[in-house]
Design a protein around this nucleic acid. Structure first.
Lengths: 216, 216
DNA sequence: GAATGTGAAGGTTTTCACAGCA
DNA sequence: TGCTGTGAAAACCTTCACATTC
């Protein structure tokens, strides 16, 4: 377990392993080999072992990895062995879908605050949460002890909202607006650009782009 | 312009360049340097030039790249200088949000068919589109000349739907279900896993993970 | 002078291959 | 024997640096 920077891809793959391990657990497997885990997420066994080895030695030679234990370990590495309080900005199409997106809550992300600037929405109850005025965010974010903000407002206003979110002290932002947001160095920002993958598909279709698949 | 495999990252960055170029065009810029383009998408100038050079020589030394022309060129490379007919499976939370997601139509992806297996939804009109029974997909996909399928059904049934979609001859699938789908080699499959980025944020917060930013 | 296009260098990630252990 | 853990090698991707062109 060296002190090297962990790559983004490794972290993303941890999410995949976690997902596969949940299924394996449901299927009552006690242990799983890197080979099987790799197969279930279209990766290579070596990749799985290397990824896990950055964080420790979780397996047993000759046997494989203990499913439940490894699942717990990965959840702990990812920091999702706890609950995260999330606020969502923009209760439009995407925003409302995210509120009921089961996968978020399943991974411990609780959307407990909704913000909008539309007077018709403010004060109304959306799936059990009263929509707050975006103007009151600083106070409300602090009171509710929000740690992560999800941005689902139109691209035109996203930067303004983010500036305020940052001022309110939030250090982690997930952005769904198709725009490059500016945040200070100490704020984590990730973008979810849903049309990007469609564009990739378009490219692949038009260019017969060869797909990268493990050789195994 | 060599015949090397273009990397996934390069293609994703093309989407970013396109987005930045649209803004530049609106701001009435005639030309743009790799430096400026890089700045707008948090990349390096060298990266921009390298990416573009895989596809041709679009710039002028001493001047930069012509904004409108480059935009057209990239759209053409990505295959989005045309319309794509898309069918969406599963008109639930995510599904309905995607139907009205402006960024899709802006990039030429038209969702013109909706499928669900819920008898209460079938036959009803959703934002101008009649929801079809998932059982009729083969005939309907062919009649409507659908080329891309978007999967927004629950994870438990996603594989069955995809099997049918593949049987119906669709070669490109965008999957929103948090599950690893199996498709034949000649079918392009991309996954949109929205909780993955939240998990990354969680990891970053818990581990003070250093962010990768260009040194410029 | 300014900025592209691109080989070569440098860095990072993946894969290999095997020692080591249950 | 079976499968992990891991250095070393290979593959891949990014950055450098400069010749080239406008």
């Amino acid at each position: 377990m060296t002190k090297k920077r962990i790559s983004e891809s490794t972290i993303h793959r941890l999410s995949l392993y976690l997902r596969a391990l949940s299924v394996l657990e449901k299927e009552s497997h006690e242990t799983v080999s890197s080979k099987e885990l790799a197969k279930r997420e279209k990766l290579t066994p070596a990749q799985v072992r290397k990824d896990l080895s950055f964080f420790g030695s979780f397996g047993t030679r000759g046997l494989g990895y203990p499913v439940s234990d490894l699942k717990k370990q990965i959840a702990s590495i990812l920091g999702i062995d706890r609950l995260w309080k999330v606020a969502l900005f923009g209760v439009g199409n995407i925003g409302s879908a995210l509120v009921s997106y089961k996968e978020f809550s399943r991974q411990g992300f609780q959307i407990i605050k909704l913000f909008d600037n539309d007077q018709r929405k403010i004060g109304s109850n959306h799936k059990g949460i009263i929509i707050s005025d975006i103007k009151d965010m600083e106070k409300e974010l602090q009171e509710a002890q929000i740690e992560i903000a999800v941005i689902a407002v139109p691209a035109t206003v996203a930067q303004y909202i983010v500036d305020d979110v940052v001022k309110a002290g939030i250090k982690a932002i997930l952005n769904f607006a198709p725009i490059n947001l500016k945040v200070p160095q100490d704020v984590y920002l990730r973008n979810e650009n849903m049309s990007m993958e469609l564009e990739y598909l378009s490219f692949a279709l038009v260019n017969n782009h060869s797909q990268k698949r493990p050789k195994i």
